[in-house]
Protein backbone atom coordinates (compact mmCIF):
# COMPACT_ATOMS: atom_id res chain seq x y z
CA UNK A 1 0.00 0.00 0.00
CA UNK A 2 1.11 3.48 -0.81
CA UNK A 3 1.53 6.15 1.74
CA UNK A 4 -0.95 8.96 1.57
CA UNK A 5 -0.14 12.57 2.16
CA UNK A 6 -2.67 15.15 3.23
CA UNK A 7 -2.51 16.88 -0.16
CA UNK A 8 -3.06 13.61 -1.90
CA UNK A 9 -6.19 13.00 0.13
CA UNK A 10 -7.62 16.45 -0.56
CA UNK A 11 -6.86 16.07 -4.24
CA UNK A 12 -8.67 12.77 -4.26
CA UNK A 13 -11.65 14.21 -2.48
CA UNK A 14 -11.99 17.06 -4.95
CA UNK A 15 -11.55 14.77 -7.92
CA UNK A 16 -14.15 12.34 -6.61
CA UNK A 17 -16.57 15.13 -5.90
CA UNK A 18 -16.21 16.52 -9.41
CA UNK A 19 -16.63 13.10 -10.95
CA UNK A 20 -19.69 12.45 -8.88
CA UNK A 21 -21.18 15.82 -9.78
CA UNK A 22 -20.60 15.29 -13.49
CA UNK A 23 -22.38 11.97 -13.32
CA UNK A 24 -25.02 12.87 -10.80
CA UNK A 25 -26.49 16.13 -12.04
CA UNK A 26 -28.26 14.74 -15.11
CA UNK A 27 -29.39 11.70 -13.10
CA UNK A 28 -30.73 13.99 -10.42
CA UNK A 29 -32.57 15.90 -13.11
CA UNK A 30 -34.14 12.72 -14.42
CA UNK A 31 -35.21 11.45 -11.00
CA UNK A 32 -36.49 14.79 -9.75
CA UNK A 33 -38.45 15.35 -12.95
CA UNK A 34 -40.09 11.97 -12.48
CA UNK A 35 -41.54 13.31 -9.23
CA UNK A 36 -42.90 16.54 -10.70
CA UNK A 37 -46.46 17.21 -11.70
CA UNK A 38 -47.18 17.79 -15.38
CA UNK A 39 -47.14 21.51 -14.66
CA UNK A 40 -43.84 21.17 -12.83
CA UNK A 41 -42.25 19.30 -15.74
CA UNK A 42 -43.00 22.18 -18.09
CA UNK A 43 -42.59 25.06 -15.66
CA UNK A 44 -41.20 28.05 -17.61
CA UNK A 45 -38.34 28.41 -15.16
CA UNK A 46 -37.05 24.99 -14.15
CA UNK A 47 -38.07 23.61 -10.77
CA UNK A 48 -34.75 22.64 -9.22
CA UNK A 49 -36.69 20.62 -6.70
CA UNK A 50 -40.08 19.08 -7.47
CA UNK A 51 -42.81 21.27 -6.04
CA UNK A 52 -45.21 19.76 -5.21
CA UNK A 53 -43.80 16.23 -5.13
CA UNK A 54 -46.07 13.93 -7.07
CA UNK A 55 -46.16 10.25 -7.83
CA UNK A 56 -48.44 10.81 -10.80
CA UNK A 57 -45.81 9.90 -13.36
CA UNK A 58 -45.23 6.57 -11.62
CA UNK A 59 -48.95 5.85 -11.67
CA UNK A 60 -49.02 6.68 -15.37
CA UNK A 61 -46.12 4.39 -16.11
CA UNK A 62 -47.17 1.43 -14.02
CA UNK A 63 -50.90 1.43 -13.58
CA UNK A 64 -51.93 2.47 -17.07
CA UNK A 65 -49.45 0.20 -18.83
CA UNK A 66 -48.37 -3.42 -18.55
CA UNK A 67 -45.00 -2.30 -17.32
CA UNK A 68 -44.64 -4.96 -14.63
CA UNK A 69 -44.74 -7.66 -17.27
CA UNK A 70 -42.14 -5.83 -19.37
CA UNK A 71 -39.76 -5.73 -16.40
CA UNK A 72 -40.15 -9.47 -15.86
CA UNK A 73 -39.47 -10.14 -19.56
CA UNK A 74 -36.39 -7.94 -19.50
CA UNK A 75 -35.04 -9.77 -16.45
CA UNK A 76 -35.57 -13.20 -18.02
CA UNK A 77 -33.96 -12.24 -21.30
CA UNK A 78 -31.03 -10.29 -19.86
CA UNK A 79 -30.18 -12.84 -17.16
CA UNK A 80 -30.32 -15.80 -19.53
CA UNK A 81 -28.22 -14.06 -22.17
CA UNK A 82 -25.67 -12.91 -19.58
CA UNK A 83 -25.27 -16.42 -18.18
CA UNK A 84 -24.70 -17.85 -21.64
CA UNK A 85 -22.25 -15.11 -22.53
CA UNK A 86 -20.24 -15.49 -19.33
CA UNK A 87 -20.10 -19.27 -19.52
CA UNK A 88 -19.16 -19.53 -23.19
CA UNK A 89 -17.16 -16.30 -23.18
CA UNK A 90 -14.97 -17.42 -20.26
CA UNK A 91 -14.07 -20.68 -21.96
CA UNK A 92 -13.40 -19.03 -25.29
CA UNK A 93 -11.61 -16.04 -23.77
CA UNK A 94 -9.36 -18.32 -21.78
CA UNK A 95 -8.61 -20.50 -24.77
CA UNK A 96 -7.93 -17.57 -27.08
CA UNK A 97 -5.78 -15.89 -24.47
CA UNK A 98 -3.87 -18.70 -22.88
CA UNK A 99 -3.92 -21.85 -24.93
CA UNK A 100 -1.54 -22.40 -27.83
CA UNK A 101 -4.05 -22.52 -30.68
CA UNK A 102 -3.47 -21.76 -34.33
CA UNK A 103 -5.55 -19.03 -35.92
CA UNK A 104 -6.24 -17.16 -32.69
CA UNK A 105 -5.67 -13.78 -34.21
CA UNK A 106 -7.91 -14.53 -37.18
CA UNK A 107 -10.66 -15.73 -34.88
CA UNK A 108 -10.40 -12.63 -32.76
CA UNK A 109 -10.46 -10.36 -35.80
CA UNK A 110 -13.51 -12.13 -37.23
CA UNK A 111 -15.27 -11.69 -33.90
CA UNK A 112 -14.38 -8.02 -33.97
CA UNK A 113 -15.75 -7.62 -37.49
CA UNK A 114 -19.03 -9.18 -36.41
CA UNK A 115 -19.45 -6.72 -33.60
CA UNK A 116 -18.75 -3.93 -36.09
CA UNK A 117 -21.70 -4.79 -38.27
CA UNK A 118 -24.43 -2.18 -37.79
CA UNK A 119 -27.44 -3.48 -35.87
CA UNK A 120 -29.84 -1.78 -38.28
CA UNK A 121 -28.55 -3.90 -41.14
CA UNK A 122 -29.13 -7.25 -39.46
CA UNK A 123 -32.68 -6.70 -38.24
CA UNK A 124 -34.51 -7.61 -41.43
CA UNK A 125 -32.56 -10.81 -42.22
CA UNK A 126 -32.67 -11.91 -38.57
CA UNK A 127 -36.42 -11.45 -38.63
CA UNK A 128 -36.62 -13.87 -41.56
CA UNK A 129 -34.47 -16.33 -39.64
CA UNK A 130 -36.65 -16.06 -36.53
CA UNK A 131 -39.80 -16.53 -38.55
CA UNK A 132 -38.37 -19.62 -40.25
CA UNK A 133 -37.52 -21.02 -36.81
CA UNK A 134 -41.00 -20.17 -35.56
CA UNK A 135 -39.43 -18.10 -32.79
CA UNK A 136 -41.32 -14.84 -33.25
CA UNK A 137 -42.83 -13.88 -29.89
CA UNK A 138 -40.61 -15.95 -27.66
CA UNK A 139 -37.81 -15.42 -25.15
CA UNK A 140 -35.28 -17.32 -27.22
CA UNK A 141 -35.84 -14.90 -30.14
CA UNK A 142 -34.00 -12.34 -28.00
CA UNK A 143 -31.76 -14.50 -25.82
CA UNK A 144 -29.87 -16.11 -28.67
CA UNK A 145 -29.16 -12.92 -30.67
CA UNK A 146 -28.26 -11.03 -27.49
CA UNK A 147 -25.81 -13.76 -26.53
CA UNK A 148 -24.34 -13.83 -30.03
CA UNK A 149 -23.90 -10.07 -30.38
CA UNK A 150 -22.42 -9.67 -26.91
CA UNK A 151 -20.05 -12.62 -27.03
CA UNK A 152 -17.39 -10.94 -29.19
CA UNK A 153 -16.90 -8.10 -26.74
CA UNK A 154 -17.05 -10.45 -23.74
CA UNK A 155 -14.45 -12.77 -25.28
CA UNK A 156 -12.12 -9.89 -26.07
CA UNK A 157 -12.42 -8.35 -22.65
CA UNK A 158 -12.15 -11.63 -20.73
CA UNK A 159 -9.16 -12.64 -22.80
CA UNK A 160 -7.51 -9.35 -21.96
CA UNK A 161 -7.95 -9.91 -18.24
CA UNK A 162 -6.83 -13.54 -18.45
CA UNK A 163 -3.67 -12.36 -20.15
CA UNK A 164 -2.93 -10.19 -17.13
CA UNK A 165 -2.85 -13.11 -14.72
CA UNK A 166 0.68 -14.39 -14.02
CA UNK A 167 1.48 -17.65 -15.78
CA UNK A 168 2.91 -19.19 -12.62
CA UNK A 169 -0.59 -19.60 -11.26
CA UNK A 170 -1.46 -22.03 -14.03
CA UNK A 171 1.83 -23.83 -13.69
CA UNK A 172 1.00 -24.35 -10.04
CA UNK A 173 -2.26 -26.01 -10.99
CA UNK A 174 -0.58 -28.12 -13.61
CA UNK A 175 2.02 -29.35 -11.17
CA UNK A 176 -0.76 -30.29 -8.77
CA UNK A 177 -2.11 -32.47 -11.56
CA UNK A 178 -5.40 -30.63 -11.92
CA UNK A 179 -6.99 -30.76 -15.39
CA UNK A 180 -7.17 -27.48 -17.35
CA UNK A 181 -10.90 -26.99 -16.76
CA UNK A 182 -10.30 -27.35 -13.03
CA UNK A 183 -7.35 -24.98 -13.15
CA UNK A 184 -9.51 -22.47 -14.97
CA UNK A 185 -12.36 -22.85 -12.51
CA UNK A 186 -10.50 -22.86 -9.22
CA UNK A 187 -7.37 -20.83 -9.88
CA UNK A 188 -7.78 -18.53 -12.87
CA UNK A 189 -11.43 -17.59 -12.54
CA UNK A 190 -11.24 -16.30 -8.96
CA UNK A 191 -8.40 -14.03 -10.00
CA UNK A 192 -10.27 -12.82 -13.06
CA UNK A 193 -13.40 -11.89 -11.14
CA UNK A 194 -13.11 -8.15 -11.86
CA UNK A 195 -12.90 -8.99 -15.55
CA UNK A 196 -15.82 -11.38 -15.29
CA UNK A 197 -17.79 -8.74 -13.45
CA UNK A 198 -17.02 -6.16 -16.12
CA UNK A 199 -18.02 -8.47 -18.96
CA UNK A 200 -21.14 -9.51 -17.07
CA UNK A 201 -22.25 -5.98 -16.30
CA UNK A 202 -21.74 -4.81 -19.87
CA UNK A 203 -23.56 -7.78 -21.32
CA UNK A 204 -26.42 -7.32 -18.92
CA UNK A 205 -26.80 -3.61 -19.62
CA UNK A 206 -26.57 -4.16 -23.37
CA UNK A 207 -29.42 -6.71 -23.21
CA UNK A 208 -31.34 -4.54 -20.79
CA UNK A 209 -31.33 -1.58 -23.15
CA UNK A 210 -31.57 -3.27 -26.57
CA UNK A 211 -34.50 -1.89 -28.55
CA UNK A 212 -34.66 -2.70 -32.26
CA UNK A 213 -34.63 -6.51 -32.06
CA UNK A 214 -36.96 -6.57 -29.07
CA UNK A 215 -39.40 -4.33 -30.93
CA UNK A 216 -39.25 -6.23 -34.21
CA UNK A 217 -39.21 -9.87 -33.09
CA UNK A 218 -41.68 -9.77 -30.21
CA UNK A 219 -44.87 -7.84 -30.78
CA UNK A 220 -46.92 -9.65 -28.16
CA UNK A 221 -47.17 -7.93 -24.78
CA UNK A 222 -46.21 -11.22 -23.15
CA UNK A 223 -42.69 -10.95 -24.53
CA UNK A 224 -42.06 -7.23 -24.84
CA UNK A 225 -39.22 -5.71 -22.85
CA UNK A 226 -38.73 -2.41 -21.01
CA UNK A 227 -37.24 -0.32 -23.86
CA UNK A 228 -40.13 -1.34 -26.10
CA UNK A 229 -42.62 -0.51 -23.35
CA UNK A 230 -41.10 2.94 -23.01
CA UNK A 231 -41.36 3.54 -26.77
CA UNK A 232 -45.13 3.12 -26.46
CA UNK A 233 -45.52 6.08 -24.11
CA UNK A 234 -46.89 9.44 -25.17
CA UNK A 235 -48.57 10.33 -28.42
CA UNK A 236 -47.21 11.60 -31.72
CA UNK A 237 -46.74 15.23 -30.65
CA UNK A 238 -46.42 14.89 -26.91
CA UNK A 239 -43.35 13.61 -25.08
CA UNK A 240 -44.43 12.77 -21.52
CA UNK A 241 -41.06 13.43 -19.88
CA UNK A 242 -42.38 12.70 -16.38
CA UNK A 243 -43.68 9.24 -17.31
CA UNK A 244 -40.60 8.41 -19.39
CA UNK A 245 -38.29 9.34 -16.54
CA UNK A 246 -40.37 7.50 -13.94
CA UNK A 247 -40.19 4.32 -15.99
CA UNK A 248 -36.48 4.67 -16.63
CA UNK A 249 -35.75 5.47 -13.00
CA UNK A 250 -37.36 2.17 -12.08
CA UNK A 251 -35.62 0.40 -14.96
CA UNK A 252 -32.22 1.50 -13.72
CA UNK A 253 -32.70 0.15 -10.19
CA UNK A 254 -31.95 -3.53 -11.01
CA UNK A 255 -28.60 -2.53 -12.50
CA UNK A 256 -27.62 -0.54 -9.42
CA UNK A 257 -28.74 -3.40 -7.18
CA UNK A 258 -26.72 -5.85 -9.24
CA UNK A 259 -23.58 -3.79 -8.78
CA UNK A 260 -24.16 -3.31 -5.07
CA UNK A 261 -24.81 -7.00 -4.52
CA UNK A 262 -21.59 -7.97 -6.27
CA UNK A 263 -19.68 -5.10 -4.72
CA UNK A 264 -18.67 -7.03 -1.58
CA UNK A 265 -17.78 -10.28 -3.28
CA UNK A 266 -16.14 -8.99 -6.39
CA UNK A 267 -15.14 -5.40 -6.44
CA UNK A 268 -13.87 -4.57 -3.00
CA UNK A 269 -12.85 -8.15 -2.35
CA UNK A 270 -10.03 -7.57 -4.75
CA UNK A 271 -8.97 -4.18 -3.49
CA UNK A 272 -6.13 -5.69 -1.57
CA UNK A 273 -6.70 -9.29 -2.49
CA UNK A 274 -4.61 -12.03 -3.93
CA UNK A 275 -3.62 -10.32 -7.14
CA UNK A 276 -2.17 -7.25 -5.53
CA UNK A 277 -0.68 -8.94 -2.50
Amino acid sequence: MRKRTMGHRIGLAIASALTALFVVLPIYWMVSTSFKTDAGVSAPSPQWFPNPISGGSYTNAFVDNSFGRYILNSVVVAVAATIIVLALGTLAGYALGRLPMRGKFTTLMVLLMISVFPAIAVIAPLYLLMRELGWLNSYQALILPYAAFNLPFAIWILRNYFLGIPREMEEMGRIDGANPLRTLWSIILPMALPGLFTAGVFTFTACWTEFLMALSFNSSNDFRTIPVGIALFGSPHITPYGTLFAASTVAVIPIAVLVLVFRKSVVSGLTSGAVKG
Partner: peptide
Protein backbone atom coordinates in the same frame (compact mmCIF):
# COMPACT_ATOMS: atom_id res chain seq x y z
CA UNK B 1 -16.00 2.33 -4.50
CA UNK B 2 -18.98 0.01 -4.80
CA UNK B 3 -21.38 2.91 -4.51
CA UNK B 4 -19.44 4.99 -6.99
CA UNK B 5 -19.47 2.13 -9.46
CA UNK B 6 -23.20 1.72 -9.08
CA UNK B 7 -23.58 5.43 -9.68
CA UNK B 8 -21.30 5.37 -12.71
CA UNK B 9 -23.24 2.57 -14.25
CA UNK B 10 -26.50 4.50 -14.19
CA UNK B 11 -25.76 6.70 -17.22
CA UNK B 12 -24.39 3.75 -19.11
CA UNK B 13 -27.32 1.49 -18.33
CA UNK B 14 -29.97 4.08 -19.16
CA UNK B 15 -31.94 3.08 -22.19
Amino acid sequence: RGWMMALLLIPWSLI
